[in-house]
């Protein structure tokens, strides 16, 4: 019997944007409130998993043609690059830099290089989670 998933699919189309926005919010507020790259990455992955549940693996692959292993590698490179930039300035490895900037829309904002490291963590978490789920899902 062929099931009709119209309820699930319609709900997913709405909910997925809320989850993704929440993931971005969690990612950017990590410095001052609970959150950060790890939870943000897991939330993003959970949004993609919801897509996979509502539709199927091939459709999701068509919407998001990503190589998740390369995503892990890119994330690691960003993290290593952020930490390794300190070597160029001849200060101990992992020394971060930060300053305050006046951005047009946000006003006075502090930008910290730790956010770039977190971006690396975020990409690795999304990549690893999706590689695990996709590999098990495709296994016959």
């Amino acid at each position: 019997m062929k099931t009709n998933d119209v309820m699930l699919q319609t709900a997913t189309k709405v909910v997925i944007f809320i989850i993704l926005l929440f993931a971005v919010h969690i990612f950017f507020t990590g410095h001052y409130t609970p959150g950060g790259g790890f939870v943000g990455g897991l939330l993003t992955a959970s949004a993609i998993v919801l897509l996979m549940l509502a539709f199927d693996l091939d459709t999701v692959k068509k919407i998001l043609p990503l190589n998740y292993v390369a995503m892990v590698a890119v994330g690691l490179l960003i993290a290593l690059g952020t930490a390794g930039a300190s070597i160029v300035f001849d200060v101990p490895f992992f020394t971060h830099a930060y300053d305050y900037f006046d951005l047009p829309l946000f006003g006075k904002t502090s930008l910290h290089s730790a956010a770039l490291f977190d971006l690396g963590v975020y990409l690795v978490v999304v990549g690893v989670t999706m590689t695990i789920i996709q590999t098990i899902g495709e296994d016959e």
């Binding site: 490895f93 992992f94 020394t95 971060h96």
Partner: peptide, 9 residues
């Protein structure tokens, strides 16, 4: 002699 470094300054 012994080399030591503490990460992140």
């Amino acid at each position: 002699g012994v080399q030591a470094i503490t990460l992140g300054s």
